[in-house]
Amino acid sequence: MSYRIAVIGGTGPQGKGLGYRFARHGHTVVLGSRAAEKAVPVAAEVTERLAGVDGAGEVTGASNVDACAGADVVLLAIPYDGHDELVATLPLDDTIVVSCVNPLAFDKQGPSGRVVDGGEGSAAESAQRIAAGSRVVGAFHHVSAVTLWGDADFLDEEDILVVGDDVEAKQVVMELARSVTGRDGVDAGKLRLARQLEPLTAVLISINKRYKTHSGVRISGL
């Protein structure tokens, strides 16, 4: 099934890379930015990258608010700083919202996960609290922007871990994971487990720095 996907923060590396992957496999994508004039040239760059790809979906640029209009799925690919304020401005009622936001901190010792709501919350849960009429799912936290923008048709050595409380919404996002890895995402449990998934990204960044690579997550035993 093909979806209309709004990527909020679609001009950043993660948002652009995910937008490219979704469009590459037939979905219609609107890259959002605070200003439409910033999103339009990035959409053109992605469209150019898709030249010659059979069945690719259309990619356009718009303001964040306009990108949400008519979207089946809204992906939040935004920094954690300013996250709550931005989410509050978006029309997200009755929409599946995917959060790949990673609240991270950096100091002399390297990356670490930031504590959200005293350890009893996450960016994904904050989005659900603010956009109470939406259905929030956490996913795509651990995919490198570099590999997303790479040449491989699928990142088939990785798994997409998906958490959420709405079964139907989670199933849609697990299906969307096929655009990235070539197979369904892994049902990793309830939305509150985003508290573990989001800071795990800091571990991958540390691995990447030490081994000069772009690591991901793969689940064995399935």
Rank of each mutant, 00 (worst) to 15 (best):
F140D: 01
V87T: 04
A44W: 08
G9R: 07
V42H: 04
P79L: 10
Q128A: 14
T181D: 12
G185F: 02
L31Y: 08
R129N: 11
A77I: 03
P199V: 08
R21G: 10
G32R: 13
V116D: 13
I219Q: 06
G57A: 03
G82C: 02
G32E: 03
S206L: 08
H25I: 09
D153H: 00
D93Q: 06
H27C: 09
D93E: 10
P103Q: 06
G138K: 15
A132K: 04
A77L: 05
G121E: 07
A62Q: 04
E58M: 12
A51W: 07
F140S: 08
A145W: 15
T95M: 09
R135E: 11
L155A: 07
E37G: 09
V180I: 14
E58K: 15
G12L: 06
S126T: 14
A6D: 01
V143H: 11
V101S: 07
F140H: 13
P41T: 09
E37L: 04
A69G: 01
D84A: 15
G70H: 01
S126N: 14
Y3F: 15
I207P: 11
K38N: 12
N64Q: 00
G164S: 11
D93M: 08
K16S: 15
A132M: 05
L193Q: 14
G150V: 01
D93C: 10
G133V: 01
R34Q: 00
G55S: 00
L193K: 15
L86W: 00
I160H: 06
A62H: 02
G57E: 04
V217P: 01
K170C: 05
S99K: 14
E158L: 13
